[in-house]
Design a protein around this nucleic acid. Sequence first.
DNA 1: AAAAAAG
Length: 756
Amino acid sequence: MPKNKKPAGGRAQNFEPRYGNKTSYQDLKRRPGQASAGKPGSKSPSHRGFRPETEDAGKKQRWTAQERAGRDEARGIRSHTRTDDRPARSYDDRPARSYGDRPARSYDGPARGDRVSRDDRRPGDGRPSFRDDRPRRNDDRPARSFDRPARSFDGQRRTDDRPARSFDRPARSFDGQRRTDDRPARSYDDRPARSFDRPARSFDDRPRRTGDRPARSYDDRPARSYDDRPARSFDRPARSDDRPARSFDDRPRRTDDRPARSFDRPARSNDDRPARSNDDRPARSFDRPARSFDDRPRRSNDDRPARSFDDRPRRDDRPARSFDRPARSDWNAETKSKAHEAHVDVVHEKLQAEAVQAEAVADVTFSSLGLGDNIVRVLADLGAPSPFPIQAATVAPILEGRDVLARGRTGSGKTIAFGAPLVESTLRDQAGQRREFGRKPKALILAPTRELALQIDRTIQPIARSVGLFTTQIYGGVPQARQVGALKKGVDIIIGTPGRIEDLVEQRKLDLSEVRIVVLDEADHMSELGFLEPMQRILRLVQDGAQKLLFSATLDREVAALVDEFLVDPAVYEVAGEDQDSGTIDHRVLVIDHRDKADILSSLVDRDGKTLVFARTRAYAEMLAEQFDDLGINAVALHGDLNQAKRTRNLERLTSGRVSVLVATDVAARGIHVDDIDLVIQADPPDEYKTYMHRSGRTGRAGRSGTVVTLITRQRRRKMTEMLERAEIDAPFQDARPGDDVLEEIAGRQLANVDA
DNA sequence: AAAAAAG
């Protein structure tokens, strides 16, 4: 983790004293190590020299060994917070719980200790993070408020439960009896258990349902998990072998079919399918209606073990695939390295889609699309009184139960486009049923980054809650306990990232077998090398015949691997005339000398509006953030070397306006919505045109204007030109050197300049 | 190179 150490030390520079804004970067760079005792910076967050150092230092001192006892509790609270529920509660509970439990729980010590250390380590800072945590916690609070909207829903329940809870706890700690009753069994589950307790507790229902839980969870889980698992795990290996191979083979071949298919789509009505199905999917098209039960089961049973043989007759592709299988791993490795070394910008054929005319849906309402009143009301509250074109296009087919592929340019409202109908149809499926404790999730939304998962939940949760459905986020980088607690309680909709979801499935804490709708946001990205196989594994776990929805601004045939295996006769939509260049974004390319890069970047970033800077590597993102910060420009970084708390916090800092510059890797390229970013700077040009489109899509959202400037060196011009062509974007190239007017202009400082 | 589980 050498990388982590660097930021730890380096980041501290942000808290180092500043000796005036004019100090050169180099000067400041040397100082940090020694100057940690320097004089504090401005206390005003809005001030350039703002330095929350006092807070930092103070915290450290405050945490005596003795007080370490409260640490875990506090940390637990932090995680609650993050997930958004608990701020209020956390304050109430903590004292009681932590002091009450401690003694009794002494045996917990080790486990807790583990958690702590894990927690600390994860931050990526290693040891220092331990201390960093505290400040972080403080910093998180604001973040809480950030999430709070969703929380408001909990509020009620919470109010109810809290008292109850607090009663529980004391009791528990003293008795050990109750605990003995409940726990023994439970504790085994949870070893995780204890940690489970805490989180669970945080869930208000606990007390109430304490009775139910043990029984239920025992009944269901063991049985279920044993049944499924063996089978599943058994299948999986086989499947995983098939799949990759298959997908590989298929793509080329199906590439031929597809276009045809997609053409049919519009006319899809009835004529086409038969025809198509003869070519491609004889079996499938028939099953389709019944697919929910007929098709899939067959697939799942036949395929996995025997698939390679069985399918062949049925599907032309399969046989070939299975033959190739051995080679598949080679292919993977080979492709991977190739893509790596050469940074191949693979251009996948654009999927043919049924183009929705924006005008045609101008007077459509959410109600008329089939959404219920509660949902429509919440949508209005969310700022969507009437549907955007992509929403008007996809809501109805999703409610019909069709598999849907949708392409809508960045910022066009895709989250609601799948989220609202997903909630509606989940609701319909459950109509009349009681929401049982420990019920299994019915819908799953997958995103490539944690931040995106969080953001999606912020949109979906209010919609879901308005009809009495519950969501939870399942993503890595945070303690599992709270997530597991939510699952035990029962959740209807899961929003998360693949890693933690698979992790919990393997731990049998998450059962996807009743999931009837799956959404892949940024689906093309989720079909890329590192994501494809996890996605395939996850998709195999959901209910047979589950509806699949694939969304992305750059939806292309890269998703074929998933579509071919998991989707049945999907409808494909896009909005006519909505390519990326039709928006409100001004694209610029600056051709610079490499040695001027730092200066030029500093100059561009020194401005009033919110600026998002993209760097290719984590280290460079970190370095740039330091560089800007050292110059007195408040900047923070966002990349995978930061622990999740910092990631969340730093993004929130930009959102809230506490900083105006965020330097990020491509973790922030897709989906992240910050309202008023008006300048995106690509410190390193992207390698892929799709990346260009997504990065630039962080500005100019929902009709706003924005500027995207890409810095390249002379040698890069040609490649850049090609990329822009692929992205179908027009951008003037311009030579630039430090001090040039163009920098002022792009930064939006021309007026100031004129005045001067 | 980045992201996604931990460790």
